[in-house]
Structure formats: C-alpha cells, structure tokens
Amino acid sequence: MKIYNIQNLSFSYDEKCLIFENINLQLDTNKITLLNGINGSGKTTFCRLLSGLEKKYKGRISLGYRELSKLSSAEISDKIVYLKQESFANIIAATPSEDIAIWKHKFQNKISHEFEKEQLEALKEYNLEQFKDQPFWEMSGGQIKRVGLAGLLLNMDKYWILDEPVTGLENALIDILINILQKRKTEGKGALIISHRFEKFEQIVDNWLKIKDKKIIDIK
C-alpha cells in the first residue's frame, strides 16, 4: 500500500527558482526510504511538502487516497509525523514532560494516568527521565533532539518523516532509533529518512532516493 502518491510535482518558493520539477514518486507505507542529496538540493523542502507545511505546489500529492493540500493539519497528523532537522523546531513547551504531554492533550483533553506512564517510558527510552522537568534552554542540542525522538514513540502507528534524525547523537542513541525503526518495519510501519549518514541505516533501508537536478531519482 502506498502512503504517498506524487504526480507531476513542481515547486518553488518564489516562482523564479524551481526546486522540484515534474516529480513522480510513490512511497510505501511499510517500507523505509532513505533520501539524500547535496546541501540545498531541497530535502527539507520535500519533507515540508509531504507534511502539508507548503501547500502552494503544482501537481498532486496524495496522502492515502486524498489530496494533501485539502487535508487539515489534524487529518495529516493522524497519518504522519514529521521530525524537523533543527531540534528546537520540534519543541512547543518549556520542558520535555510538558512537551510530550501536548502530543496527547492537544490543549483539548485531559491526560490519563496511563498516558503519564507511556510518557515516562518514551523519555526513558532516550535516557531523558532525569531531565523531564528541566527547561529546554538549559539543555544541550543533542538532549533536545532526543526529546523530539521520544515524541515519535507516542506515534508508533503513523508513517515517520525524519529529517536528519541522527545529527548530534551518540552511537548508542542512533542504535536505539535504528532498533525502533527495525521493529516498526516488522509491524508494517515505514518511514522516510533524510540523512547523510547512510551507513547507519544501510541494514534497514528498502529504497534509496537522491535529489539531483530538481528530480528525485531511485538509486538502488
């Protein structure tokens, strides 16, 4: 089954300089795809398009069977999670526990006791339990990145889009992420990963894509 079906996609920020031109691509729900390309080739822009943050594109992007630009943020976030490259860009609240809680309450609902347990488990997975109430501005870039990754664990049933998820992480933590991705894969849950450190993901990746000359090409 396809999570994304992209047809004739073209995109530019200012109508002068095209970033993508006539892209045709499909992404499988249950496969792990690795995307790379040189700096400034449009990797992050591609993620922004897939996550519905950029809506003024030409062509079609279908998420499931529906046109992405017509979906609300709630409908998109029901199906996918996008972890941005900059660690601070994934953060909303002042502390990790508060930030993780927003995944659940969304300023609408109350948090159950079970969720608090789940929240703590997610933080524990990335060795963050001792920092759970520490303000973000007193944490390092790597620690903040880990909070973003911990948030993913509350969204195991969704398709993940990860932009440079291992930058600034030590090897042991990269291994934790790879194990999680591996486990998800066996459950039929895929991901799109953007990373220059492809040697780290070599064992779990199904498709290799590269952005070159405004196109996305299959390289393996």
Binding site: S51, L53, S73, E75, S77, A89, E98, F107
Partner: peptide, 26 residues
C-alpha cells in the same frame, strides 16, 4: 512553534478561545 503545533494536528485558529489562550501562553 506554530508549525510544530500544526504538525501535531493542533490548529490555533480552530481552538476555543480559552484553550487558544492556554496554547499561546505555552
């Protein structure tokens, strides 16, 4: 931060006023 909210399916414009105020404070 607003984009981070949208990525979690929270649209500030669609929140009721008191909850929206709470979100802004956060």
């Amino acid at each position: 931060s607003n984009e981070a909210l949208l990525l979690r399916g929270i649209d500030l414009k669609k929140l009721p006023i008191i909850k929206r105020f709470r979100a802004y404070l956060t």
